[in-house]
Nucleic acid binder design. Sequence first.
DNA 1: AAAAATATCACCCTAAAAGGGTGATATTAG
DNA 2: CTAATATCACCCTTTTAGGGTGATATTTTT
Lengths: 211, 211
Amino acid sequence: MTNDNNNIRIVIIEDDQVIREGYAFLIGQSEGYEVINIYASFDEAAKKIVTDAPEVILLDIELPGTNGIEAIPKLKKVLPQTHILILTVYESEKLIFDALSNGASGYLTKNTPAAKIIESIKEVMQGGGPMSVNIARMVINSFRRNQDTPLSKRETQILELICNGKSRTQIANELFIDLETVRTHIKNIYIKLDVNSRADAIKTARDNRLV
Amino acid sequence: MTNDNNNIRIVIIEDDQVIREGYAFLIGQSEGYEVINIYASFDEAAKKIVTDAPEVILLDIELPGTNGIEAIPKLKKVLPQTHILILTVYESEKLIFDALSNGASGYLTKNTPAAKIIESIKEVMQGGGPMSVNIARMVINSFRRNQDTPLSKRETQILELICNGKSRTQIANELFIDLETVRTHIKNIYIKLDVNSRADAIKTARDNRLV
DNA sequence: AAAAATATCACCCTAAAAGGGTGATATTAG
DNA sequence: CTAATATCACCCTTTTAGGGTGATATTTTT
C-alpha cells in the first residue's frame, strides 16, 4: 500500500462482504491502484462517495435498496467523470443494455479473474470499454441484422423509414416513388410480418432484427 | 505446420501482400491454427472460399473491387456458420456499425498485436465477440443515453413510445393517462426539441441519444 | 417559503395520414 | 419461364397529427 497520489482511485460497491473485501484486497495490493472505500450498497455510498472522488467505481447490480442499474445515473450525476464498471453475475440482455445506456463504461461478469479486472480498470481509464467476451458477443449481436428476412430489399428499406417515423408521403419523396407504391410496399410488409399497424411492424422488425 | 484436422480453419482476405503473408505466417505457425488460404480481394476469394470451408475469416475493409463491408453478407450467405473478424485500420463509427450489422463477429484494428489476434480467433470460436478496446468504447458509447436531456422523465418515456411508432391513443392507454395529457407532453417535447413532427422528433432523439 | 418545472386534463380547429380492398403492368431473378 | 419484386391507380372510412389556448395540482428547486 502506498500514499502515492498517482494511483487510480477506486471505490467498490458490492453487497457480498466476501467478494467486496476480496476484490478490495486484490486490487489494493496492485501497484498503481488504490481502493479508497468499499460500500455494501449505493444508499450507504451516496453520502460519502463525492468526497471519495473515485476515478473508477466497481458496481454490483444486485444491491439492497437502490439497485446498481438505478445507481448508475445517480452516480454519474454527482461524479460525471468517473468510470463505472459493472461487475455482476447477470448476463441478461436487458440488464446489460440498461447498464450501458445508463452510462456504464464496461460490463464484466463475476467469473472474470482478478487480473483481468485490474487490467480492465486501467483500460477504462485509457478510454477503453472492457467487456467480458460473452457480453461482447451479446452487444455485437444486438447490431446484427437477421440474414434471412422475409422482406425484399425495398421493403426493408421502407420498413427502416417507418422505424424512423416517416409518413408515407415522406417515404415517397425520399425514395422518388409514388405514394401509392409506398402504400403497396407497406401493405406487403404488413402481410409478411403478419401485422396491421406501424407500431406492430416496428416491434416485429426490432424483435426479429429486421432493421 | 500440422495436418491435424482439429485445427481452426482460417482464411485471410487482405489486399496488402506484406500484411497478408505476415499474418498468415504468424497464425499458421501457432499451435491449433491453420491458414487454409489467403486472398487479396473478395472477388478473388469468392470462387474458392466455399471449398476452403473456413471457420474464421480475417477480413480487411479496404479491398479492391467489392469492399469488406459489402463482402460480409455475401460471405455469410455462402458460409453462414463462419465467423468473420474485421481487421482494419479504420475506426469510423459508421464502418464499425455497418460491419457489425452486416454480420461481423468482431472488429479489430491493425495495431492489434498478433498474439491478441490469435487469441481473438479462439474467442470468436467460443462465442465471444472480440473488439479492440477503442472499438469497444465506441460501441458502448452508442448505447449511452445523453445524461443532460432537456426532457423530463415522463417526456422521455413518451418520446420512447413515439420512437416505437405508438400513436397518441396507444400511448395514453399504455401509461393510463388521458389522450389530452399525452398531447400536451408531445407538444412540450416538440417545443424542447424544436421540431414539429414525429419523424423530426425521432431523428433529434436519436442524434442526441435521448432514447 | 416562493418560484419553476412537471404532470395532468379540456376543448377549439383542419389537414394529413393510416389502413383495407382490388386490380394492373413492367422488370428481375431463380 | 414462373415467381417475386417494384411500380402505379382508385375506391372507401376512421384515426391521427399538429396548432392554439387554457386550467390545476404536484413536485422540485432555489
